[in-house]
């Protein structure tokens, strides 16, 4: 009985995060199947990595009240693992980005893509990105600057082509 409550609570916690995780996974690996596999694998690793936090937890009323905080915590741990796995897979799979849409975006290296996604799509600030990805502040700033430079260049080119 308690176990089924824990399972249900854990699932309720992660369910709203799925569209975001899908978007991040696709940013890392622009292939539906690979992205879905990445979501499942990173979720499994994330739970195993912080077993005491997610699996051994006795979900009580205060957890339900604090759900937003817990969900944010889960999202950050999940992203961290997903980025780690996704970057490795992006290299191993040697995915060709030529044919895909948003060429400029996929021409950025995987970690810069993640930083750009967190910063410009999700609106995270530098320190949040720094702590979640385990990067140094100057590294995050460098990736933010590089991605902006390349992405605005791409925007200008596509506007010129349209005009």
């Amino acid at each position: 009985m308690i176990e089924s409550v824990r399972k249900k609570d854990l699932f309720t916690l992660i369910q709203p995060l799925l569209p975001k995780c899908h978007s991040l996974a696709m940013s890392l690996l622009p292939d539906d199947l690979q992205a879905q596999q990445l979501i499942v694998d990173s979720f499994t690793q994330c739970l195993l990595k912080e077993k005491s936090l997610w699996l051994d937890r006795d979900w009580d009323e205060s957890d339900k009240k604090d759900q937003l905080h817990l969900r944010r915590l889960m999202l950050k741990s999940w992203i961290k693992v997903m980025v780690h796995l996704g970057m490795r897979r992006a290299t191993q799979l040697q995915i060709r980005y030529e044919g895909v849409e948003h060429r400029e975006f996929y021409h950025l290296d995987a970690s810069t893509r993640v930083v750009a996604w967190l910063k410009y799509d999700q609106g995270w600030n530098i320190s949040e990105i720094e702590s979640t990805l385990g990067l140094k502040k100057f590294e995050v700033i460098e990736k933010v600057h590089n991605s902006r430079f390349i992405l605005t260049g791409g925007l200008k080119r596509s506007q010129e082509l349209q005009g």
Partner: peptide, 27 residues
């Protein structure tokens, strides 16, 4: 405008349901 240069992926209801099933299985 930078936001427009980040891809926005459609997560279909079908794909979401499938994903939810897989994650329930993991749990």
């Amino acid at each position: 405008n930078l936001k427009n240069s980040i891809p926005h992926f459609q997560f279909s209801t079908e794909a979401q349901t499938q994903m939810e099933g897989e994650l329930k299985e993991v749990i």
